[in-house]
């Protein structure tokens, strides 16, 4: 990488509690831990699927543990915040130019929020969360 490493000393490990903007930034970064952790849970699920029905049922049973329940609630909070923030900055990350004009940022953000809502709805309906039985 670069020759000189970037080292910025901070006085404490809790510097981000001072301002909402800093705290918001850190909470978004920390969400990556839960996204990664959740991907590992999915991987564990795929492993159990490959191992057969007994293993898969054990995986589902493992999901009902208090640790898993806690992880899910915390992960849900962090990932919801992350999604709201992520789509909120899409107008800056990928501005859309039409002719000489730039599409107003809120159209891009709203478009992503609508897409997020639709994708989430499809996932919940297809997985059968809403069905009885």
């Amino acid at each position: 990488m670069n020759g000189r490493p970037y080292v910025r000393e901070v006085r404490t490990a809790s510097w981000y509690f001072g301002r909402w903007r800093d705290l918001h930034h850190m909470l978004n970064e920390i969400s990556s831990i839960f996204i990664g952790g959740y991907a590992l849970i999915l991987l564990w699920g795929v492993k159990s699927l490959a191992a057969g029905e007994q293993a898969y049922l054990a995986f589902l049973d493992g999901l009902t543990s208090p640790l898993s329940l806690t992880f899910h609630w915390v992960a849900l909070g962090f990932t919801l915040l992350n999604s709201v923030s992520w789509f909120g900055v899409t107008p800056k990350a990928m501005p859309v130019q039409i002719g000489d004009e730039f599409l107003p940022g809120h159209y891009i953000a709203i478009g992503h929020y609508v897409a997020w809502f639709c994708v989430s709805l499809v996932v919940l309906v297809v997985s059968g969360v809403f069905s009885n039985g």
Binding site: Y38, L63, H72, L76, W86, W116, V119, S120, V123
Partner: peptide, 17 residues
């Protein structure tokens, strides 16, 4: 992740219950 993960977490949260 932003599009999918919250919904997926809800699905397995339901399983957790």
């Amino acid at each position: 992740a932003a599009l999918l993960v919250p919904a997926l977490v809800v699905v397995t949260l339901v399983v957790a219950y």
